[in-house]
Nucleic acid binder design. Structure first.
Lengths: 256, 256
DNA sequence: GGTATGCTGTGGTCTGACCACAGGGTCTGA
DNA sequence: TCAGACCCTGTGGTCAGACCACAGCATACC
């Protein structure tokens, strides 16, 4: 067995094992880096490399200082890691923007169809469409910039995913959208009329929500498909945009 | 906005920028760690932390020694990072196994329906079902252990995704499956009769492929749904087994 | 009692050192 | 001349130690 015996992997496996066995749970603090290093018989730098991976993957949050809020704490923030992974893979040409969009379309179509079916079957105490409705209302506000509108737009779509209750889909959709954020913004700036486009998007949003609320799965599928593929067709998203004007102030995992 | 001034993020952003601008492409070698550190004005340890992240995310491959194969090389291996992310999130109770299975079901249903539609619209040379057929044939071999069978099973499902041509879906499905590999194996051992189950799985595999080949999307959807949810129901994975309800502290933080 | 000060423990970073390894060049002997 | 053994060099992998910034806490001071 010529296993990978790099020290940082040992640390990673140790933490993963503690998570699986229940010795570590969300909210718990990891031992200090120096202690962890001593316990595992590795150097502090190796511990730090493993913690860095866990941080980007959205499993730990680190904070300097002392007190209960300091140190490395186990959290569960999957969307940050998903965004980082997808975004970097797009940058490295591992993923085509077209495939990202298609995947998002696939997931969201399934989400709204599932929601509509749930509504159709009656008894919907489990699904909560109120956040989606509120976001729709917020988007009606006049004077929104394209960036503000697009941010609310994303939250609307995520609210639908949240309503489905599937956290994997929520995180994946968030990551898919984040990974092409740059392209979406560039596309928005190239539209002939943002007012016309945003009005159409709003109309489609209302149609989607209405289809879900009346339990019409086929209509929900159709409207979502047209909504997403329509926007990306209109903005003519190409895998390569000219000048990168890096509004990239925020990169990988988000901090709050 | 207090920017994140940690050094390793600077390195990460530098590499990402080089990828986006085309200064780095898959196959290229990164500068040596010491050079990179000097160029960016950071310590070598910070460079290594960033490289570690890129390695886990499947963007670089590192090798010791000298010569053209050594150093950090840009690669594009999305499935590894996806597996690590999903697996660790499952371990940290960020993702429920049930949601993983449901997502896999959603994606694969869409994949086979899409393949069937493509076939229906006329034999396109772009879709290639030969690998799936070959894997099906390989699974007919007698005397396969459950582990061997399950490995071929996964490759069969991935072959279908590959045929769709969407690399994002391929990587996601691979990650979804890998992340619950442990549970699948444990479930297999608890089956009353592996022979019976594997025979049924094979029958369903043939049904799925047949439905795709004759362009019958509805049948493809149905058979895939029964295939996947059936297996997980049989192994008691689909109904969430333990009463794990981790308090979602800091899950999906607000972004505005 | 309330504020100011310093102590302590934490992550963040840098430096320097050493090791293992792989490739390529060089030397040596047949 | 050629094949093999040898060493040199550059690379990642790791460790140890040092210092900093920061946040909380205890203590001292007013």
């Amino acid at each position: 067995m010529a296993e990978d015996r790099r020290a940082w992997r040992l640390v990673l496996e140790s933490v993963e094992g503690d998570l699986l066995s229940g010795r570590l749970s969300p909210g718990d603090r990891l031992p200090p880096e120096r202690t962890l290093a001593a316990d595992l018989g590795v150097g502090r730098s190796s511990v730090r490399e493993a913690l860095r991976v866990l941080e980007v993957l959205g499993l730990v949050r680190t904070a300097v200082g002392s007190g209960p809020n300091s140190g490395a704490v186990i959290v569960s923030r999957p969307s940050g890691g998903m965004s980082a992974l997808l975004r970097l893979q797009v940058a490295a040409h591992g993923f085509a923007v077209e495939d990202i969009v298609k995947t998002r379309l696939t997931l969201e179509t399934a989400v709204v169809a599932d929601l509509a079916d749930t509504v159709q079957e009656g008894a919907s105490p489990t699904i909560d469409l109120a956040p989606a409705r509120d976001l729709l209302a917020a988007m009606e506000a006049p004077g929104l910039t394209d960036a503000e509108f697009l941010a609310l737009d994303q939250r609307f779509h995520l609210a639908l995913a949240e309503a489905s209750g599937n956290q994997v889909i929520v995180a994946t959709m968030a990551g898919l959208r984040d990974s092409i954020e740059h392209y979406v913004r560039v596309g928005a700036r190239q539209l002939p009329s943002w007012a016309d486009t945003s009005a159409r998007l709003m109309r489609e949003h209302r149609d989607i929500l209405a289809a879900v609320e009346r339990g019409d799965a086929p209509a929900a599928r159709t409207t979502v498909r047209e909504h997403i593929s329509g926007y990306y067709a209109e903005t003519n998203l190409s895998p390569r945009s000219p000048e990168l004007t890096p509004d990239r102030t925020e990169t990988s995992a988000d901090l709050s």
